[in-house]
Design a protein around this nucleic acid. Structure first.
Lengths: 217, 217
DNA sequence: AATATTTTTTAGATTTGTCTAAATTTAAAT
DNA sequence: ATTTAAATTTAGACAAATCTAAAAAATATT
């Protein structure tokens, strides 16, 4: 369980091919650097990690495979909780965090089928398939850089704190919402936008940076 | 998690009001008596157990309440796995064993609603409601003691080993099956019975003892 | 009733995971 | 190039969980 959380965090921290550092991982897991070092040795011994002391580390291909399986579990449970049990998309993260560790591959594959093979979770993040492959992800960019009056669709939220999600819920910005930017204020880079036929809302630059929309060039 | 398993096992071992012993519990949990003693002290300190050393023990009312919540979780997950994910009723026990420990009350109540408040799990065991109350259970007795030619319905299986469940599956004896005893052989107490319009099958006394049918006097 | 057997408990060893504090290595600054 | 600071690792402490072996209490036997 602790091991799985380490793998998952490393996966998230290393974007495409980046090296992850001990301190960063300790911060992400709310633990101490010394504890991280202990775990790194263990993961290396199991060939899940490429690691030399003092040099940083990243997942091996096997480690990546395992991490993706956990992420698959997490996202399928989130989808289930929202679509079937009617939870709000901003209250399911912690629950999925628990469930992901205690469900066999067989169970998850059945759940996947039951849910009719969804491609992305309620936050817009892609769900790896049974073999750990993503179905090609649509290209994304921050809402902040969306052209004026160009309709776009909200694909994902890149900062998923409770506070952020609460704000979005309040302003009615959901995954899948069709959005058009009406005005950009250069003074503070805040953005005024419209969703369907509701009154316009204004969001700050930080918020706009963390809302990802489709980028079809 | 370990604590929860202890409470659950104690609940099952003490039928109505019986005292449970250290050795019995150790056997049920595949652990050593010394470890049980350690746990007993802990549970007593939390007021979940009525216990004096060398005197055996049983659940306090609070302990009983907690145990029933765990059993509720277990049985709802079993129901979900069979009815929604299409698992066989004999392959879900281990999975539910894991899931029961990692689901909040809120989650379980939602699951209960989603499943439309089932009253009993796929093995015929009753599911406690949100407050830990059973809905009155139909009176049960072993198939072994069922009168000849008196139609009855299979309500539960009291011995749920994989082997037993496999045997029942093979002979097509399911929860809810309508059964009639056609003959009893006094030589070895084996029983010949008929289910609906299928050919008769014979089962041994041990098996017949662990199949529970309705007993309406 | 005295002795033997079984059950339960205690005491201490072992393992595992995480921590603190000190030591080592790497990176940054003057 | 030294020196200083930051990051990482090591060594050893501590707590939790479970075990083995021995001691204590309860039960059974003659």
């Amino acid at each position: 369980m602790s091991k799985e959380n380490h793998l998952k965090s490393i996966f998230h921290l290393q974007g495409e091919n980046e090296i992850v550092t001990t301190n960063d991982l300790a911060a992400a897991l709310h633990t101490k650097p010394a504890s991280i070092t202990d775990m790194l040795k263990k993961l290396k011994k199991e060939n899940l990690l490429i690691y030399e002391r003092y040099k940083g580390f990243k997942l091996s291909s096997e480690g990546r495979r395992v991490a993706l399986q956990i992420i698959r579990k997490h996202r399928l449970w989130e989808y289930f909780l929202v679509k079937k049990l009617q939870f709000g998309w901003n209250e399911v993260h912690e629950m999925a965090e628990e469930l992901e560790h205690f469900s066999s591959k067989k169970l998850i594959d059945r759940l996947d089928k039951f849910l009719d093979y969804p491609k992305s979770d309620p936050h817009g993040d892609p769900i790896p398939d049974s073999n750990g492959k993503f179905t090609r992800q649509q290209k994304q960019k921050p809402l902040l850089h969306l052209d004026l009056n160009k309709p776009a669709k909200v694909l994902a939220i890149s900062l998923q704190t409770t506070e952020m999600l609460e704000l979005l819920q309040h302003k009615n910005i959901l995954i899948g919402s069709k959005i058009t930017v009406k005005k950009k204020f250069s003074f503070d880079n805040s953005v005024e936008l419209k969703i369907a036929n509701r009154p316009s809302v204004t969001i700050s630059a930080v918020v706009a940076k963390n809302i990802l929309v489709n980028d079809d060039e």
